[in-house]
Amino acid sequence: MSSDSTSFSPVIAGSALGSNAAAPATPKNVAHRGGALNPTVDAIRAQFAGAVLRADVVWGETTVVVDRARVHDVIRWLHDDPSQAYNYLSDVTAVEFRDLEQPIEVVWHLRSLPYRRFIRLKVLIEKGTPMDVPSVWDIYKGADWLERECYDMFGITFRGHPDLRRLLMWEQYKEGYPLRKDFPLRGRFSRSEQLRQALAANPEARYSKEELSIADAFEDLPADMRRRLDTGERTGE
């Protein structure tokens, strides 16, 4: 938050490549499989023996499937190590396949701006196992909402996230996780029931316990209301 201009040192993409490196160019005639592997994969293999379950190149992009228990260490190392410097988190998302036997994939898209590299990390969550992966919020602050959205849409818990609440749907949304394949396109309830539940909410009074504490209004509430707010419920329902 400081506007001190002396501490303002710009981050320049491609700065680690040197001046005689080839300028980036639009990829042409990208092969479906078997392009050049991102050198980061070998570095991860050397640093974390056995953590890389699979690495392949699809349409010119390197995909690394990482052990679920060690993905946080891998990302932490990719971010901190100056020879990798993956300092920019593009995206956190998940994929569920139509074949319900296939595991759910949690996907991180990372960019190394100094080296102009792009890598896709994946963790496979087998069906039937608990749906939780470590949060990378402590590494990238930008992961905050991306992980909350992923939790909201898929029900994947990000361990270590400071405030894992629903983001896009309202908190009392009862129909489930919309982007799961067992969720029908039109939702589980009938239109009239969806409308009734939505209209039953009181938009002016919908505050969380945290927000009411700011206004010192929390202590003035009746005991049962406070108890309900303590469990994460909100007012106005």
Partner: peptide
């Protein structure tokens, strides 16, 4: 710049904060 890149800011937001990153130039 460090905050901006950690928060994942991109586009004019990131560039105003000194993150010289433009997808058109870099990727």
């Amino acid at each position: 710049p460090d905050e901006a890149i950690n928060y994942g800011l991109s586009g004019p937001m990131g560039r105003a904060s000194g993150v010289a990153f433009d997808v058109r130039k870099d990727f």
